[in-house]
Write a protein that binds this DNA or RNA. Sequence first.
DNA 1: GCAAGGTC
Length: 610
Amino acid sequence: MKIVIAEKPSVARELAKVFGATTKKDGYIEGKGYSFTWAFGHLLQLAPPQEYGFIGWRRQHLPMLPKKFKLSVRKVKTKDGFIEDPSVRKQLDIIKKLFDEATEIIVATDAGREGELIFRYIYYYLKCKKPFKRLWISSQTDEAIKEGFRNLKPGTDYDTLFNSAHCRSESDWLVGMNATQALSIAAGNRTVLSLGRVQTPTLAMICSRFIETKNFVPKLFYQLSILLDKDGQQFKALSIANFDKKEDAQVLFDKIQDVSAGFPTGGLIKDVESKPRKEPPPLLHDLSSIQQEANKKKGYTADQTLSILQSLYEGKLISYPRTGSRYIGDDVFAGIPKLIDQLRNHPEFGKSAEFLTTVPLNKRSVNAKKVTDHHAILPTGEPPYHLSSEKQAIYDMIVARMLEAFHKECVKELTKITIESGSTFIANGTVIRSAGWRSVLNDPEDDNKGEESLSLPKVKKEESLPILEKALVEKQTKPKPLYNEASLLKALETSGKEIEDEELRYAMKDSGLGTPATRASIIETLITREYIKREKRNLIPTDKGLAVYEVVKDQAIAQAELTGQWEKRLEEIRSGASVSEFKEEITAYTRTITTQLLGCGVSIAEKATV
DNA sequence: GCAAGGTC
């Protein structure tokens, strides 16, 4: 019997289907000489400190540097504390039995670092010695799966990938467990003060933005505004110049030749500029982008959206949701026309769907090279029934985005009118010439760009128009907004470097903090620790969070760059570089940060433990 | 009691 092990049940089912294996057993599917079994993500984790004899949180244990790490079965939280997850134990027993009977083991966990680790931890925990082969595919279509099975790799080809994954795992344990205990002990052991490679830089981003906002001193400035009239259609224009002093603004304000000052047509049109602007449709959704949209439009937390997505996925209504890709391959694209066709009678999206059946589809979201383990989120085409309003809302966002992504670009006409009256004024207008993808939802535009979507009258250069009103407007500079879940998720993708451009953000996503699948839980961890709280839709630090931030803000553990540095080294390990060298550095760093944190003592004690 | 990673 050949055993195939996948990362999750859905993938095992898919593989079994391709092979025509149909006999459902407890924990695996059998047929055609194969058994297809699965994990549920990581079944094993690095054992906690107490399993190495570090009982209680004590200064003299630190730094805890296990010679050899142990694995333990994933725990689940119950009212009596943490216990071994029984479903995980059961699945491990099933996998063990299958491995014992196996004539060949085929590893079909996701094609990436963590997928490799998920299998290897199981393999070593079960003390399995049989050789294994690796299925390495980046698309789940029947053809890709068949091709992958014809082209299995020797398991040892991925030893260096496992090394890099293993290093990532142990390094996070060493730094996280030691720093957490060190800081907690330093503060008097009254509460858990956790630190980690990902959570601490995230906390630092929230704190530094909060402090920046709090200390922000708004600056007053002045601008002039006029209201013009062209054959009954009125429009507003603003002075190009800003003035720090009111008196300076007043001088030019007095020179405005408005009607009430006795000038019937005091606004001279110096220039009229019209140019079209094309807006391509948005890319399909990945996990992060839909979490952001759901937070902006519905106020759902990243965690809520993830669990809604999980249940839609389990109901077979949408494709795998924990994806970091906003693209699909050509094979998946081939199924899109059918998905769109099914929506022709949809009460809200029927018209858009109907239209799309008559035109060539936009292929901006089609790029097989940008599909990694999983493609962008799509509906499966399975009809949804009786969804709760929350599930319906998320489902509709996925359907709408699909229609938008394959739609035509939106064409706008930008008009800029320059007016002279004592000083120079500008009126900006945007008119949508062809709505394209924007017709799907008809959402008002994101107004954060300060772009006014109003239409301006047709005016001619050199003509003079009456100025009906003038005003001297007092304005003030604004601080950067506090983080909310949407802006934080976006910032985490690029380690706090906020990048507007979607494509550039994608290129940088490998240097982001955390992964799509873990970001929601990072936010929840910081809330559980009482480091941050939700206030309206914002995420703001608590006094405890700020106290921790003050202690660690200049240390490496609070810098997003630490992840970038690790990633660089891990990638070198994957291509064959020495493992021991990196481990020595991590050990040294663990010693350093432990000593530093233990020494911070009193400064944190009162502030963080109230 | 604690990390980050994956998933039901």
